[in-house]
């Protein structure tokens, strides 16, 4: 069984984002770039599956769409434990463009299980995984909070409104994963960092694909009104404000 993990390169989640060029571009000054948190958990789970020899996982690969400047993020994934990597040498234009590039780069490579994080923490679209599955004609399960391998089948837990489904799926499969998939992201050890330098990283040139959407401009959130404080000795006043002023309860 070969596993592929799709990786997005995003600003650290504590970043206070700022924009330049008339709010058309993210100001990357001082930004710490990281592996998208959900992708990092996917990679961790893929490596856990490989660690258990009974699962018969032969390799864990990672793939990323981004220019050469994003290679440190890919090397980090290799340092955490991925065996090899593919980088599609392109600036991501939109989710459709990224999914099309991923599909093109991996068609013909017989990955059995493809893991994608439920969303990237920059555009919060929850879109690339499902799009990739449709491009490849593979089944997909979204909102996956658990994955294991049983007799050559992939068994996943899918979160639904008010519960869970236990699903067995044929491979190849795209699983779009979220919280619960792994407990803590795996951290690169010194040995892994040394080994990552020599692991294979293949660069694939993009195919021509039109983006279907286009950014007009970013906006900053409107500042919220100042907080109104209530005397801790008299919290009843809070309930009255919620009833009479906010009219919410």
């Amino acid at each position: 069984m070969k596993i592929l993990v799709c990786i997005s390169h995003v600003p650290d989640t504590t970043t206070k984002v700022k924009f330049i060029d008339d709010f058309k571009k993210l100001d990357s000054t001082g930004i710490q770039w990281v592996i998208n948190p959900w992708d990092e958990l996917s990679l961790t789970r893929a490596l856990e599956l490989k660690d258990d020899a009974a699962n018969g996982v032969t390799s864990v690969s990672v793939i990323h769409v981004g220019p050469a400047a994003t290679e440190p993020t890919i090397r980090k994934a290799l340092a955490i434990g991925a065996d090899d990597a593919v980088r599609v040498n392109a600036d991501p234009k939109d989710a459709y463009y990224v999914a099309a590039q991923l599909a093109n780069a991996i068609k013909g490579d017989a990955y059995d299980l493809i893991l994608c994080g439920i969303e990237s923490s920059d555009y919060n679209g929850s879109t690339v995984g499902g799009m990739l599955a449709e491009f490849l004609g593979y089944p997909s399960v979204s909102s996956v909070s658990g994955v294991k391998l049983e007799n050559g089948q992939v068994v996943v837990i899918r979160e639904i409104d008010g519960g869970k489904e236990i699903i067995s799926a044929e491979t190849p499969l795209v699983a779009v994963v979220q919280k619960g998939i792994a407990r803590e992201p795996r951290i690169a050890a010194m040995r892994g960092i040394m080994m990552a330098r020599t692991k294979p990283l293949k660069v694939v040139e993009p195919v021509e694909v039109d983006a279907l959407t286009e950014l007009v401009a970013f906006e900053m959130p409107k500042p919220r009104a100042a907080c109104k404080f209530v005397d801790p000795e008299n919290p009843k006043q809070l309930i009255e404000l919620l009833q009479n002023e906010a009219k919410i309860i």
């Binding site: 459709y96 929850s126 690339v128 499902g130 909102s143 779009v176």
Partner: peptide, 19 residues
């Protein structure tokens, strides 16, 4: 929601419709 997130991206590719 979970169901919409599972369908909409596939639909976008199938219909070549921007999402």
């Amino acid at each position: 929601n979970n169901t919409g997130k599972a369908i909409a991206p596939r639909l976008s590719v199938k219909l070549k419709a921007g999402l």
